[in-house]
């Protein structure tokens, strides 16, 4: 592992067993077991402070990879080092160094205001009470959520909840944050706010950001680098600028006129301008 490398993944694979039930009684008693490779021999590394988007279609292996990197799922083969630690063997030690946000799973207690869960997080991450309060105050000011932290989570909007969730994963000052679809279901205004806050925290503390998303805006506005995965294999690993230059050469522009313009006039206009 190089000095600046904070995540190193080598020849990582994960195979699940899928049960295929054939119709009828025979299928009920004798389901066919089939191996399904969700992640197939992938290797990459991430440097400290980098913001990496890990993207791909549904079922490409994004979440499985992030779950292996965070110690949730054990790999079938290959090795992972996150902040110098092996997630499969040193899950608890590694947990102090990472923050994880799963857009579809809440870490906050639904019936309580976020402030109570933040204090519990302080105890979970072994921060003393003064340190916890200091850290909460700092994050509340940075994220401007003074009016949210005393409202029960169930009464917050999805966007407000997501911002409070992000604060929750930063209480213990992690070195790396893993964000699995952090803007899922959010409206465009809140998405922008979430992106701005992640950028702000990255600029302030140098935290490494590793995110999965389906939203091109997240990738464009948040990340320096994109890793695209498809059918369990990495197909592209490139800087965001290089990706734009290499692959995004065409743009489709839709123009709407107030009055009807005959098609031949438009074609004529385009050709005469070109000449």
């Amino acid at each position: 592992m190089k000095k600046d490398t904070i995540i190193e993944v080598e020849h990582l694979s994960k195979t699940f067993q899928k049960k295929i039930k054939m119709p009828g009684i025979k299928g009920f008693f004798n389901p066919i077991l089939e191996d399904f490779t969700a992640v197939n021999d992938i290797s990459f590394s991430v440097n400290k402070g980098e913001k990496v988007a890990f993207v791909g279609p549904n079922g490409a292996g994004k979440s499985t990879t992030i779950k292996m990197m965070t110690g949730i799922v054990h790999p079938s083969s290959g090795s992972i080092k996150v902040a110098g630690l092996d997630p499969t063997k040193q899950r608890k030690q590694m947990a102090y160094k990472i923050g994880c946000l799963f857009g579809q799973k809440s870490g906050l207690w639904m019936h309580l205001p976020p402030i109570d869960t933040y204090k519990l997080f302080g105890a979970i991450y072994d921060l003393d009470e003064d340190e916890t309060l200091k850290r909460i105050n700092h994050l509340v000011e940075t994220f401007e959520i003074q009016d949210l932290i005393y409202t029960p989570v169930r009464r917050l909007s999805l966007g407000q909840r997501m911002i409070c969730e992000i604060v929750g994963i930063l209480i213990h000052e992690p070195e790396i944050i893993f964000l699995d679809e952090p803007t899922i279901g959010l409206d465009i205004v809140v998405k922008e706010k979430v992106r701005a806050l992640i950028n702000k925290i990255n600029a302030e503390s140098g935290v490494t950001v590793f995110l999965t998303s389906h939203d091109v805006g997240d990738i464009e506005k948040l990340c320096d680098r994109v890793i695209i995965i498809d059918k369990g294999r990495i197909v592209i690993d490139e800087g965001i600028d290089g990706l734009k230059d290499t692959y995004l050469k065409k743009k489709i522009i839709t123009v709407k006129h107030e009055e009807t313009i005959p098609l031949e006039d438009i074609i004529y206009d385009i050709y005469t301008r070109k000449s």
Partner: peptide, 17 residues
């Protein structure tokens, strides 16, 4: 439901948590 993930990413004994 897969919500055990939240507990597995925290540095406490999963079952106790």
């Amino acid at each position: 439901e897969g919500t055990l993930d939240v507990y597995l990413t925290q540095p406490k004994n999963v079952i106790l948590n």
